[in-house]
Every structure is written in structure tokens, then in C-alpha cells.
Amino acid sequence: MGQRAAARKGRSRSRSRRGTARRRTTGPIVLLGICLALLSVGAGAALAHWRGAPPARTVADGREPEVSPLMSAAASPETGSPSPSKSPERSPETEPKPSPSPSKSRKPSVPASGPGTFTAAQSSGEATGDSGTLRRYRVEVEDGTDVSARQAAAEIQQILAHPRGWAANGRGRFQLVSSNADFVIKIATPATADKLCLAVGLNTHGELNCETVEGVVVNLKRWLLGSPTFAGTPAEYRHLIINHEVGHEIGIRRHMGCPGPGRPAPVMMQQIKGLNGCVSNAWPYDDEGTYLIGPPA
């Protein structure tokens, strides 16, 4: 009995050692298999994610990003091109608002009267024109009108040098001077203009310009605002003022009427009193150098 018990005990210990050995051998194999399986699943998921949504490329040099074969393979079946992502909708707070439109420019304020004193433009220029009598003129602006005498003189100088003007077509030469002038162009308030024009028997009613013994009187209202009958800007109407009054200065005494409906009004027509079917015009000549005339008014 003792030997059998010892033998059984020995066989039991041998089986226990073999079981322990099997467990020690099987455990690492199982763990290795599990790790390999997890790595395989992770790699497949990562590849599938990359194929479905390739990483965006930053375009730093202004060129379009290159399209790889894998990116082409991700094209949508309907269009054959990558499916565009939908841009987020703007919220009312981020929606761009239109900029306010600029306010319309207001008409300049015209003082009804002034002190009756004038400031002369201290500037001079070259003679304009190639033939005819040289007439030197000085420009003066009534004080307190906010009109620069120098700027007004420069503008009048340009008007008299216009290709459709008197000087460019042989009707005389004109030169801006600051002293020793042959005639003076004065820009005056309506009340002062009326006084200067009335001195030679002309009633301008606070609205009109005139020619006097000394030279030309320009009503400030007309200089700044133009005329309600003239289809053009005040700057264009200033051409008509100067050309009309200088026309008197060079010897054209009589006014003209409209030569016919739709035709340009002569510069010697009193266009502020109505056009009678003519078209507004601020120059003595047309583009071809033809003098624009009409019947005596």
C-alpha cells in the first residue's frame, strides 16, 4: 500500500507539472494572437479612414493642390469628382451688411450780398491764341464769398484756352495778369452784381451777368449753381458765362436766337431766358471749328 500510494502521488505530481507547462506555453501564444488581431483591425480602420477623407493640403504658393490616385478614387460616383463639402450657412450676425450709400452733395450756399470789396488773383499766365488783338484780363472775387480768386482765375484761363473757344479760332488772344489789365472779370454776390450792372443801365434782377465799361460782372449765383435751363453742370455753365460775356468784350454786341429745334444754341444767345427748342451749348464753335450762330434776337 505504501508503494502504491507513493506511485499514485508521483503520477499526480507529474500530471500537475505537465498541466502547468501547457498553461505556461499556451498563454503567450493566445496573447500574441490577440495583439496581432487588434493591430490588423486598427490598420484596416486607419486605411479606410484615410481613403474616405484624405487630409487637406495647405496651398501656400497660390497653386492648386495635386490630386493623388487615392484622392481620385474617393470621387463621388455621380460626378466623377470629389464631393464638395457644404459650406456652413451664415448666421444673421455674420451676414455682410451693405455699406451706406454716400449722401448726395448739397448745393453750395450763395450769400445774397457782400461788402462790395474784391480780392484780385495774384497770378498770371501765357497768352492764349495765335492771332487777333491781345486782351489782358484780371480776375477779382468779392470778399466773403468763399470762392478762391486764384482758383477762379485758373478756371477762366482754361475756359478761354478751350479748343472750341474764341482764342483757338482766331477771334483774339487773351492773357491772365494781376495788374495793368485791359478788362476785369468780377465774380460778385447777386446784390453787388445788380449794383454794378445797374450803373450802366442794366437790370439783372439778382439773377443775371452783364458787361460793364470796366469789364465783365459774373453773378455768384450763376457761377456756383449754373442755370435751370442749361442741361449741364455748373462747371459747364461757367464756360457759357465767360464765352458769352467775353463775346461782348470782343465786339459782338447783339444777342442771337435759336437757329432751329434740336440745333445747338449759339453762345451769344441768352440761354438762361429759354432755349426755344435749341440744345444747351457753352462754346462759340463746334468740334469742326464752325461758328455757331442764330438769327438776331
Rank of each mutant, 00 (worst) to 15 (best):
M1Q: 13
A5R: 08
A7G: 03
R8G: 01
A21M: 04
R23E: 04
L31E: 11
A37V: 14
L38I: 15
S40Q: 13
V41N: 13
A43I: 15
G44V: 15
L47F: 14
G52T: 15
A56I: 10
V59W: 09
D61P: 03
P65F: 05
P65N: 09
E66F: 10
E66R: 13
L70N: 11
L70G: 14
T79S: 15
S81Y: 15
S83N: 14
S87G: 12
S87W: 11
S91C: 02
P92D: 10
E93K: 04
P98E: 01
P102A: 01
K104Y: 00
V110S: 01
V110A: 03
V110N: 01
P115Y: 04
G116N: 09
G116E: 06
A120E: 05
Q122C: 08
Y137N: 06
G144R: 10
G144H: 08
T145Q: 07
V147S: 07
R150A: 12
A152N: 06
A153D: 04
A153C: 09
E155T: 11
L160R: 03
G165R: 00
A168T: 03
R171Q: 08
G172L: 05
S179H: 11
S179K: 13
I187W: 02
A193S: 14
L196N: 04
L196G: 05
L202A: 13
L202H: 13
L202Q: 15
N203I: 03
G206M: 07
L208A: 15
V216Q: 01
V216Y: 00
V217A: 03
V217E: 01
L224H: 04
L224Y: 06
L224P: 02
S227D: 12
F230E: 08
A231H: 12
P234F: 08
P234S: 11
A235K: 13
E236I: 12
I241M: 03
H248S: 01
E249H: 02
I250P: 00
H255Y: 08
H255C: 02
P259W: 08
R263N: 10
L275D: 10
S280K: 05
W283P: 01
D287N: 13
P295I: 14
A297I: 12
